[in-house]
Design a protein around this nucleic acid. Sequence first.
DNA 1: AAAATTTGTCTATTGATATAGACAATTATA
DNA 2: TATAATTGTCTATATCAATAGACAAATTTT
Lengths: 261, 261
Amino acid sequence: MDDRAKKIGGKEMIGQQMASSLERRSGVSLWRQIADQILQSIAVGDFAENAALPPEVALAERYGVNRHTVRSAIAALVQDGVLRAEQGRGTFVLSRKRLSYPIGARTRFSEGLQGQASERRSVLLEAAVEPASRRVAEGLGLARGSVVIRLETRGEADGQAVSRATGWFDAARFAGIDAAMAETGSVTASFQRFGIGDYLRQSTVLSARHADAADLADLDLQPGAIVLVTVAVNVTPDGQPIQFAETRFPAERVELKLSAL
Amino acid sequence: MDDRAKKIGGKEMIGQQMASSLERRSGVSLWRQIADQILQSIAVGDFAENAALPPEVALAERYGVNRHTVRSAIAALVQDGVLRAEQGRGTFVLSRKRLSYPIGARTRFSEGLQGQASERRSVLLEAAVEPASRRVAEGLGLARGSVVIRLETRGEADGQAVSRATGWFDAARFAGIDAAMAETGSVTASFQRFGIGDYLRQSTVLSARHADAADLADLDLQPGAIVLVTVAVNVTPDGQPIQFAETRFPAERVELKLSAL
DNA sequence: AAAATTTGTCTATTGATATAGACAATTATA
DNA sequence: TATAATTGTCTATATCAATAGACAAATTTT
């Protein structure tokens, strides 16, 4: 109604909330849509950290739903550790900002996160040796069916999962890289053991989808969450492919910053 | 069960489907989760174009749900024009590929799509003059509250919406750019009228979220769809910001290719 | 102290989601 | 031609999602 008055105010035309009606009978419940919008509002800065959300009745009116529906959305975000509700006082924003992941030709994953998280580490979940799929073989420039090493890793910042990667390496060239990864916890350090001091990100393809069951478990997400997916090929400075990797990032906790490369 | 046999075959460890259980009481209905997974399987190449999907009973068994639930998922994808069901024969994959959007320091949106779509155009939906929000002012390096021109555009390829952009320009410097855009349908061509022959993409921040109501309408998406969001600043070669833009891409139809630049 | 505000809990009702089973209609196969 | 396989339609039932209203509990404001 009079929400339209804000249109020219220029406060936040983008975050949308504006004429934010919801879609019914869509397969996505209203409470989840509202939870997503609240998350988005927080990310965009509509609600500051430690600030109080509008009261439930106000939110219900804004979204055009029953108060209980708003409560379901809030309950999910409280469960997620995003909000804290206090009886009689209000509902408050806890954590706010998303980790900003720099992506560039030379960016290593553990770099560039300085100041954003105090503790940053990579956990090796699984290592396996297997024949290369067509996709992996093409990416690494190997013959179809060549033997490759697959490493499954999870990145954590301050104890929270922020990335989940699957990387493939030529088994002939990088035998034992799984042990190196387990020891050093870093791809860059592991490459150095194989005489590779520098490497570049040759190409990156980016997409997004709903998190599947494996992602939900590995990244500690709630069902319905979105993951950003990057598929990248890393090469030596002379253009030789050394790693093919698919990385999933929880969209609610991470944004990707494409630096001028 | 014997699906695990595929694990070492290396067919598609990534697309997941593997131990793809679903999440119940998650706010996202099972039929939508299944529809998303089928879409993903198609995108990843598990189901080729024109190929038949496994029969409904097989899918129901694989996902551990009732046949009718699978039917709901298929019905949604048929509605979307992704699948075609034929009684007695089976269900078949119609369209497959996602448009691949190149993103680089010098990439213009209409460039680089050669061969992927025969008809490519940009439609100006709305133009407005308004005070700059904090976010926009910072991006353009203007004083808070400076007057800016906002352009709302939709990109189409072969008649299908593939992008939805909101761009801001300094009104003092680019007065009349709305008319130029309406006439030329191109940002690059419009800039040339203001004496700007070349410009660079200074920074790009990438995120993903569920499409909101406005996106659903503008991009012709089904509720629950995911959009990739880029927030970028374009600058002249000497570093002067000339455009601040947020673009939404439908994740089911578009992937972003970060070219090495 | 009293009133107003805000979150928490409870009951009840309606519609969408999911399961279950049966059978029809269409097509492909033996 | 008969059989099998596959999608389409129908009925019935249980659970989740959403609405509605009332009141309790805690906190802030008057």
